[in-house]
């Protein structure tokens, strides 16, 4: 397939995934920020969302005050934030429009319909109530579900599908890792004794941001423990947003590409290396060597994979 088409599909998937993550992260933060201080409700929560979405610097530069209303506006509709949900959906559609022929009707209708609906949300946002925001965030999640469902159920299993999956999983791994990077301090083992139940709400917000709140209980059948939260997000293969699960999918899709093209390259090697590392890792190792260090390093390596894919396939 055309390199540009692959490139568009890859980024289309990334933007959809990013929009989905943003809406979950905003929702979780709203919950947390609305708690009484004694339950861990802190204003710095909005700073964390900006950090984990990678827009803290540009937010500061835009001169907006660090308040809930402004952060939410910045992350949802701000036209000047390249990473806002609005711009993610807009870019997703631009990419989709360029590769109409590579999308199924269902996928296109999901994106195009969402784009039209988003414009109507955007037009009435000045009157946005909290309830309206909830509707909007729900809408974004629904959009990514119907897009993803459309892709899963209707796309031919060929390179178009594989590139689009690659985009999704690389973005998802990046999002999970960023979230961990911002929140690592509440997950450190010693926290349990110090903070006690106060951190419970932090942990549960973290889980909500990656829609793993119920999953935790199904996997561990025990009360909330920070290292288990970290374990779930990093090493549990059954958890769809864990780093290892993302890498399982990345490796599989890259292998399918390599087989179809009868050619392997640096991207396959890098993905396997990372997957191997994750497979041979225990949470003890991670904590011993520093959770923060591990996560920062992972973010770098994951980005590196993105670059290698571009070089190898997308020119």
């Amino acid at each position: 397939m055309l390199s540009r088409t692959a490139d568009n599909l890859y980024w289309l998937a990334r933007y959809m995934e990013r929009a989905d993550f943003l809406s979950r992260a905003i929702e979780a933060s709203r919950r947390l920020a609305s708690l009484p201080k004694t339950y861990g409700g802190v204003e710095s929560e909005w700073d964390s969302v900006l950090l984990s979405s990678g827009s803290a610097e540009s937010f500061a530069a835009s001169g907006r005050p660090l308040e809930e209303e402004h952060v939410i506006e910045y992350l949802t509709f701000a036209a000047d934030n390249p990473g806002s949900i609005r711009n993610c959906l807009y870019l997703a559609r631009t990419n989709a429009r360029a590769v109409r022929t590579a999308l199924t009707v269902e996928m296109w209708e999901a994106i195009n319909g969402a784009f039209l609906e988003m414009q109507s949300f955007e037009n009435r946002r000045k009157t946005t109530s909290k309830e309206e925001l909830t509707h909007f965030l729900e809408f974004v999640k629904r959009t990514s579900l119907s897009y993803d469902g459309g892709a899963y159920r209707t796309m031919l299993r060929n390179d178009a599908y594989w590139f689009s999956r690659l985009g999704l999983f690389i973005e998802r791994a990046d999002n999970t890792a960023r979230l961990l990077d911002v929140k690592y301090h509440v997950l450190l083992p010693e926290k349990e004794s110090i903070g006690g139940s106060l951190d419970y709400f932090q942990w549960s917000a973290l889980l909500r941001a990656v829609s793993a709140h119920n999953a935790y209980h199904w996997v561990y059948r025990t009360s909330m423990k920070p290292w288990l939260v970290a374990d779930l997000l990093i090493l549990r293969p059954e958890m769809p947003r864990s780093l290892i699960s993302c890498y399982e999918s990345i490796v599989r899709n890259l292998d399918l590409l390599a087989r179809a093209h009868s050619r392997q390259g640096p991207a396959q090697r890098q993905a396997r290396k990372l997957h191997n590392q994750l497979q041979n890792l225990t949470m003890e190792n991670v904590f011993q060597n520093g959770l923060h260090e591990f996560v920062s390093n992972f973010i770098v390596e994951n980005n590196q994979l993105g670059l290698l894919i571009s070089e190898q396939y997308l020119f």
Partner: peptide, 20 residues
């Protein structure tokens, strides 16, 4: 394939498209 100019290039008077 739906191509744009940037998807094509010419070498030795032969037109190619950039594919994966």
């Amino acid at each position: 394939e739906l191509v744009e100019g940037r998807d094509l290039f010419v070498r030795d008077d032969i037109v190619y498209m950039r594919t994966t």
